[in-house]
């Protein structure tokens, strides 16, 4: 639910980084905070425990500048990943415009990833949202670790695709980020769509901006006429 304020000529869009605990959501925001020019971003607010685990959320506003007379800003939020903070997670999803799911690539974290994805579906549906209708991007983080699962395994478990019912959209749509792969395609007689995915090592910034740019573009498209 982006708000367009014609009085102050502002547009604010809310992006939420979701995923299992210790997956790298906060690290994504910290990298953006450190790399974006200080005049293009606000303060990074972290409501965290003393051991730096996110308790409620992290928040970082990023300014795109003035576009067609509108000051355009993205509000980046993370949720606490730990299972027992679900009440807080649900609150942060209120009014979300786009979601980044930060998965932990380590094979041992596969269950935690799946559980967090299920939790995302459940919490969004309680807000009346459907993830397949929202700007949504997957990030496979920690690709540098030796125990990382393969992209094929992660895609099969976390991003297997959802059915495309609208006949107008049932056509092969190439994945602009991965040559030779498709976002929409026919598999076994059924048209399916997958969320765009990115590989990342958020600790050193690999893939962080690619992910953010992709979800931001999807959100902007949802605002446009085209």
């Amino acid at each position: 639910m982006s708000m367009i304020n014609y009085a102050s000529r502002e547009i604010n869009c809310k992006l939420v980084y979701y995923g299992p605990g210790l997956g790298g959501k906060t690290t994504n925001l910290e990298f953006v905070f450190n790399k974006v020019a200080p005049n293009a971003r606000g303060k990074l607010i972290s409501l965290a425990t003393e051991t730096e685990r996110t308790l409620f959320f992290d928040f970082l506003p990023v300014d795109l500048g003035t576009i067609r007379g509108f000051k355009t800003r993205f509000h980046l939020y993370t949720v606490p990943g730990q299972v027992y903070y679900n009440a807080s997670r649900k609150l942060i999803l209120k009014g979300v415009d786009g979601v980044v799911f930060v998965a932990d690539s380590q094979i041992e974290r596969m269950e935690a990833n799946i559980e967090a994805m299920q939790n995302l579906y459940d919490n969004l549906s309680q807000h009346g949202f459907n993830i397949t209708a929202l700007p949504f991007v997957m990030q496979y983080n920690k690709r540098d670790l030796p125990n990382a699962a393969t992209i094929q395994e992660l895609q099969a478990a976390l991003n297997p695709g959802w059915p495309v019912e609208d006949p107008a959209r049932q056509r092969v749509t190439p994945d602009p980020y991965h040559e030779g792969e498709n976002l929409i395609e026919e598999v076994g007689g059924q048209w399916i769509e997958r969320a765009p995915y990115f590989e990342a090592v958020a600790m050193n910034g690999d893939g962080v901006f690619d992910t953010l740019k992709a979800v931001s573009k999807l959100v902007l498209k949802s605002l446009g006429t085209a």
Binding site: I67, K217, L220
Partner: peptide, 21 residues
């Protein structure tokens, strides 16, 4: 059903490219 005028999305995307590379 708030919608921005045509051209907004393109310009916003250009700004994204500038900001994030």
């Amino acid at each position: 059903q708030v919608r921005m005028e045509t051209g907004f999305v393109g310009e916003a995307e250009d700004e994204l490219d500038k900001l994030f590379g």
